[in-house]
Write a protein that binds this DNA or RNA. Structure first.
Lengths: 220, 220
DNA sequence: CAATCGCTCATTGGATACAATCTCCACCTC
DNA sequence: GAGGTGGAGATTGTATCCAATGAGCGATTG
């Protein structure tokens, strides 16, 4: 028997947290909007207690802003914020790649290749959700090979903060094409064991996304 | 009238959060120990609800580990963790300094000089608590001059994670002397507008602390 | 005697109820 | 009419109570 993954969320707070993330990424909860606890709790079928605990986690990640006695508000990200997030990602991800490439294993490279293919398949099938997911597998497969758990965690939070914009970027077919080429270039550099090359390719990859988004977003 | 600062914590969770931080830094709550909610809530004179919300914040910062249905445990930091934290600090703080130095103002430099003096006075007076506080003013005065709020926030969390060890380091008079010299070197480089020099001096400053701590900590 | 089962108790998770605070707007004052 | 004042209602903050889960341990069974 292939062990069944049976992943029920063990607590309501975790289930709510997952739902909140989804709602924020999907835009159901819009930037700047107040999170009305009574309404949301009722919608999720839980009381306000687990909802508030989930919100505290999001507060720590900067996804919502907390103002005492006023409540939680979905964080707004302007261009400057986006640039800062991507700049920090550059610093952290470059380090991760420099550490990871020299010690990456065959198996890990295989997993990267698999994720890369999954991205392209999902893209071709027009399944943006699955594409986003596979894209994470690709990038974090590489990053986590560095064996720096705290760094990986920070990068994950930075990705979460800009998830809204990522799907916006992917919705354009030309962007998706560019993404595929860039991924291949990264994987090739990793295969060759050329860390600096991988760092450069990843930087190109990110910079292209930022410039595209800069053209779409409000200037502050 | 010099406007009174009147800083009562507006909510119980914030008061509890501050107390928890203090308790963790001071070692009252020891690494690995379970945070017994009933006991702590009673000790702080609040119910478990605000306590749990404060713990969620600390969970997000990595100061406590949460295991569903089992509770919260004070995070343990071994040498490898310490090295990783300092490596990430290096990446982020170096960036902050490179951005900050070219655009730092006279007033901000004056504030740095003031903080530096406060560190030395507190050190001479043997007031480690005040020294720690002034030390933060010095370092974050510089970092925040970069005008990168998210980066500043990440660095703050990294500092918090190693606060326990920082006081350990300061408790040695020789270390405190070295700290003073290193601070002056940093400030001098900032005054000269030499960002790379400041980055190097800060790296020395950090590296010295890490090596000293490596000699004290358990090897994992 | 080893392994498993099932009970008990300590502890956490969550729902409900109530207290505290903020927002908003009608009203008053000058 | 500008500015301040004082509720009313909405919303958040916290205490209390009960349910759910997990750890420990003795009993049972092969």
């Amino acid at each position: 028997m292939t062990r069944q993954q049976f992943r029920r969320p063990p607590t309501a707070q975790e289930a709510v947290l997952a739902e909140l993330r989804r709602a924020i990424i999907s835009g159901e909860l819009r930037p700047g909007e107040q999170v009305l606890q009574d309404a949301l709790a009722e919608r999720f079928g839980v009381s306000r207690v687990p909802l508030r605990e989930a919100l505290k986690i999001l507060e720590g990640e900067g996804q919502v802003i907390y103002r005492p006695h006023r409540g939680y508000f979905v964080a707004e990200l302007d261009i400057d914020d986006l640039r800062e997030v991507y700049r920090i990602r550059d610093l952290l991800e470059s380090e991760a790649v420099r550490v990871a490439v020299p010690k990456i294993t065959r198996e890990q490279i295989t997993a990267l290749a698999e994720a890369l293919e999954a991205v392209e398949h999902a893209s071709a099938a027009g399944d943006l959700q699955m594409m986003t997911e596979a894209n994470r597998r690709f990038h974090f497969g590489l990053i986590e090979s560095a064996g720096m758990p705290r760094l990986s965690r920070l990068v994950r939070v930075l990705w979460d903060a800009t998830d809204v914009y990522r799907s916006l970027y992917y919705s354009d077919g030309n962007h998706r094409e560019a993404v595929h080429d860039e991924h291949r270039a990264v994987l090739e550099a990793v295969r060759l064991g050329d860390a600096e090359r991988a760092v450069t390719e990843l930087r190109t990859h990110r910079d292209r996304a930022v410039s595209a988004l800069e053209r779409v977003l409000p200037a502050r």
